[in-house]
Simulated assay, not measured.
Amino acid sequence: MDDAFEPYDNQWVFLSTVKKVPAVVAHGLADGYVVPGIGGGKSRWSSEKNTVIQNDLATQNGATVADSAAPETAAAQCLTSLQVDVTLDGMVQLRKYQLSQPLLADLSQMAAMANSELFLKQCMHQRIYAKTTPRFLWFGEENDDTLCLPRGCQGAAVPYLCECDCEVDLHDEWTFGHMIHSSFVGTLREG
């Protein structure tokens, strides 16, 4: 079909005139493509994507700071307050209001992995139901104000936030519990 969505009279003739696109052009197009809510075609450490994330964070932080502070201090804080509070307890907790949507999507992807059971069922030509065999397994938790990632994601999440020029403020609230002193009172059977 042409640009007006009209079919070509002889599509084989048209297809024979199509030239191969050089790899450099294809990579340039892939690097520039951004999927809404997920991110760009480059790796998650792309400097262009970091610029977008920083702009989103600055706009978002500027809006939240302006609600509670004077306009002149809000502008100054907006430029310096790309701070993300990370709380470590049973999981790595991130406050969603401090993160932009692309940043939340990238961090959320860190807690996901492909479901190997799905691929085994596909190889054996078994039926696959979306409710019982999802394509991806997500091990995070999300509520209204926090995104919780497994503690194993801390090694990837914190450097990624630093790579996006966010100031990470770690709060380690991990508790090791306390020892309970007890002794056995009773008799054991012989056996």
Rank of each mutant, 00 (worst) to 15 (best):
N55F: 05
N55A: 11
N55Q: 00
N55V: 01
N55W: 06
N55E: 06
D56H: 06
D56E: 11
L57I: 11
L57M: 06
L57A: 01
L57W: 02
A58N: 05
A58E: 10
A58D: 10
T59S: 05
T59E: 10
Q60M: 13
Q60Y: 08
Q60K: 15
Q60A: 11
N61R: 07
G62L: 02
G62K: 04
G62W: 07
G62D: 09
G62M: 01
A63F: 15
A63V: 13
A63K: 15
A63D: 08
T64I: 07
T64A: 00
T64S: 07
V65Q: 09
V65F: 11
V65E: 07
V65Y: 13
A66H: 02
A66S: 11
A66D: 02
A66Y: 06
D67I: 10
D67Q: 13
S68N: 07
S68K: 09
S68R: 09
A69M: 12
A69C: 15
A69N: 13
A69K: 13
A70T: 11
A70Y: 14
P71M: 11
P71T: 02
E72V: 09
E72I: 12
T73D: 13
T73M: 15
T73A: 15
T73L: 15
T73V: 12
A74P: 03
A74E: 02
A74L: 08
A74Y: 10
A74K: 01
A74S: 08
A75V: 13
A75H: 15
A75P: 06
Q77D: 12
Q77K: 14
Q77R: 15
Q77S: 01
Q77E: 14
C78F: 10
C78K: 14
C78L: 14
L79P: 00
L79Q: 06
L79D: 02
L79I: 02
L79F: 03
T80P: 12
T80G: 07
T80W: 14
S81L: 14
S81E: 15
S81Y: 14
L82V: 04
L82M: 12
L82A: 12
Q83W: 13
Q83E: 15
Q83F: 13
Q83M: 13
V84W: 06
D85R: 10
D85H: 11
D85T: 15
D85N: 13
D85F: 09
V86C: 01
T87R: 10
T87M: 07
T87L: 07
T87D: 05
L88S: 06
L88D: 01
L88M: 09
L88N: 04
L88P: 02
D89F: 00
D89C: 04
D89G: 04
D89I: 00
G90I: 00
V92W: 11
V92I: 10
V92D: 04
Q93G: 04
Q93T: 08
Q93D: 05
L94E: 04
L94S: 03
L94Y: 08
R95W: 14
R95P: 06
R95S: 10
R95M: 10
R95E: 13
K96E: 08
K96G: 01
K96T: 05
Y97C: 03
Y97T: 10
Y97I: 03
Y97N: 11
Q98D: 12
L99C: 03
L99E: 00
L99F: 07
L99N: 02
S100V: 06
S100L: 02
S100E: 09
S100N: 01
Q101P: 04
Q101F: 03
Q101R: 09
Q101C: 05
Q101H: 07
P102I: 01
P102C: 05
P102T: 04
P102K: 03
P102V: 01
P102N: 04
P102Q: 03
